Amino acid sequence: MINCAIVGLGRWGRHLAEAARGQAHLKITRAVETDIDNAQAFCAEHQLELTDNLNNVLGDRAIDAVLLATPHSQHLNQVIVSAAAGKQIFCEKPLALRRDHAERMFGACRDAGVVLAVGHNRRFWPSMQALREITASGELGTILHIEGHNSNENSEKITAGWRLSPAESPGGGLTGAGLHVLDAFVSLLGPVRQVYARFNSRDGGPPPRDSSVLALDFVNGVTGTLATVRATPFYWRVHVFATKGSAEVLDEATLVLRKSGCAAKTINYPRIDVLSAELNAFADTVERKLPFPARETEVLATLSAFEAALESMESGHPVVCDGG
């Protein structure tokens, strides 16, 4: 059993804590949260020992791993000190806003001999797993283009906090929801060569109401477009276009397959507990040394494209990605 501490008990940290309940190989026993008063009832319900200091957990030999559900600006220091303490690490995305910061984190974990798993949870959607298999199989022919969109209206509930900070969310919705699509693109097609991006804000908020649009050129010659809107109901779309057909994922369980000369076919996959599957994969990486689905090279490639997008939004010109 991997004994874990959850660090950060905001909305997403609580989702992770709930997902860990009933895990066969992973158990959360401690929690780190600076807002002690707000976290006490949750910790009591889930039988978690609560502290407001990460060092108290890192010095606890009974804790094998930490799950970081904190603002990404805190990840660099938290990952490095956790690795130095010999803790296995699961970190929510974005791991960082800069590729070089992510490289330092992976390097620290490699030197310490511990895992660093990044929580790109859309990779565990049954529909996205099927899309990766279809794309890699050659069934669709030569891949030519990809389109993607991820929006949600969580921002309509945000009137305060770190997510409203331009320093924490410099790309607006791209930093949160849109990064899921960018990761999906990289997992399907490999690294991005160049990005031309635009950010538009209708008003300063709160709540934030902005949109981000990216035009992408991949190293393998495929083109792509990505968009995200923070203030609109949930919408997901990743659509691969190729010479013999196309495949489009519309949600966790729905894929639409179109082939030349055939009627469109909608395929529905069984829904799963995605966060539980993600934590189970983390446990497999720690205990069985299986590769975590979001590999280091892919995480770094996604952050390279993200950095280029931010630079392009600022300059108004296409930006070539840093290949490291």
Rank of each mutant, 00 (worst) to 15 (best):
R21A: 13
R11K: 14
A130L: 13
P94E: 15
D284T: 08
S187I: 03
H101W: 13
H180S: 03
V66F: 06
A69H: 09
A31E: 03
L226Y: 02
T51I: 02
K87S: 07
K87G: 10
L255V: 09
V81Y: 01
I134Q: 02
D100V: 14
T285E: 10
I89E: 05
E278H: 05
L97A: 10
S212E: 12
A197T: 04
E92A: 08
H75I: 04
L214A: 03
V249A: 12
D284S: 13
A184I: 12
G10V: 01
Y269H: 14
T228F: 04
R230T: 12
N280T: 15
P208F: 05
N268I: 15
P291A: 06
L68T: 09
F241Q: 14
L54V: 15
L140C: 03
G138S: 05
K265V: 12
V186Y: 04
I80L: 11
C109G: 04
N150H: 15
D273T: 10
V213L: 13
V195L: 00
A17L: 12
P208C: 06
H101G: 10
M1K: 11
R123Q: 09
G59D: 07
A264F: 00
L116F: 07
E168A: 09
A283T: 13
S155K: 02
A184Y: 10
I63W: 01
N121W: 09
N152A: 15
P233Y: 07
D183G: 13
R110H: 11
K259Q: 13
A309V: 01
H72F: 11
A39N: 02
P71A: 08
F241R: 14
L182K: 04
A305G: 05
L140M: 03
V66K: 06
V57F: 09
H15S: 05
D52R: 12
N55M: 11
P126Y: 06
Q78D: 03
R230H: 06
N55A: 14
Q23G: 13
M1Y: 08
E248T: 15
G148C: 02
L50F: 07
G113N: 04
A85R: 03
L48M: 06
L26R: 08
R202F: 07
W125V: 10
S304T: 10
Q129E: 11
A24V: 08
Q78F: 10
R258F: 00
D37A: 14
A197Q: 03
G141V: 12
A242C: 04
A83N: 00
Q88V: 02
N121F: 07
E252I: 10
W236P: 00
V195N: 05
R193A: 15
A263H: 11
L68I: 06
A305Y: 02
D100N: 14
R122C: 00
S137W: 04
R163L: 07
N121H: 10
E307Y: 04
K259E: 11
G22Y: 01
